[in-house]
């Protein structure tokens, strides 16, 4: 069953009276238990696509259904709730708070989540253990390597047990060894039932992807 459904999604940027279509009637379905790779050249609109799925960016027409909820007409607040409950996000440059320890960073999304608020600390420790960072829980980001930072970021994305993980160039700042480690973790997560969507330049992701798409001229084409 699909947890992310795109129906005729269109997005056009207007720059100095010039219309630049980025997404042209995009249709796609993403299911739990699979790892999706979205590839494409720079400027193809990959990040725009995942930002639209996140509800971070608006779109011109079409529908996006996340976990059965149509976010097309949702308010900012409702979209924020969807992001907090149903989507975990992983970024290229980790975006960890420098003044919070690893487990505090993981706790952050749980502090506003009714389901996990009360046992946020215990859960943060469990999640860090799952990504093999049980010896780094009290370390600050500056004391961690790039790969470790990204694993903290993955633990944080899993904090509220979302069905969907959206990763924007998750290995962009990592070496090959760490890149494979991160992809392995993400693959495991998909096998555990998560819907993992990875936007990446790296062809390495194709080794792990169940389905790969290419975004080309505003269309999402299965590879």
């Amino acid at each position: 069953m699909s947890v992310v459904k795109l129906q005729n999604v269109e997005k056009t940027y207007i720059l100095k009276n010039e219309y630049i279509p980025v997404l042209k009637r995009v249709n796609a379905e993403f299911e739990c238990g699979k790892l999706y790779a979205i590839m494409g050249h720079s400027g193809a609109g990959k990040t725009t696509l995942i930002n639209i799925i996140d509800g971070i960016e608006s779109f011109n027409s079409g529908h996006i259904i996340i976990n059965g909820k149509d976010i097309s007409n949702m308010t900012k607040f409702e979209k924020a709730l969807v992001r907090n409950n149903d989507i975990g996000m992983i970024f290229q440059d980790f975006l960890l708070d420098d003044y919070l320890t690893a487990y505090e960073n993981v706790m952050l999304p749980m502090t506003i989540n009714k389901k996990f608020k009360k046992r946020a600390k215990e859960r943060a420790w469990e999640l860090l253990k799952e990504v093999n960072l049980s010896n780094r829980v009290n370390h600050f980001p500056k004391e961690l390597s790039g790969g470790e930072k990204q694993r903290v970021s993955i633990a944080r994305a899993l904090a509220n047990d979302p069905k969907i993980l959206i990763c924007d160039e998750p290995t962009g700042n990592l070496d090959e060894k760490n890149e494979n480690k991160i992809f392995e973790i993400l693959k495991n997560l998909s096998q555990m039932g998560k819907c993992v969507i990875i936007v990446s330049h790296s062809n390495e992701v194709l080794k792990y992807a169940d389905i790969a798409y290419e975004l080309k001229e505003g269309k999402l084409i299965e590879k």
């Binding site: 971070i56 409950n85 708070d97 989540n113």
Partner: peptide, 16 residues
Amino acid sequence: IKEIGLLSALGFSNNQ
């Protein structure tokens, strides 16, 4: 500024 963006991305509402 990144932190604010991150909080939004993590599902914090504008009011929060």
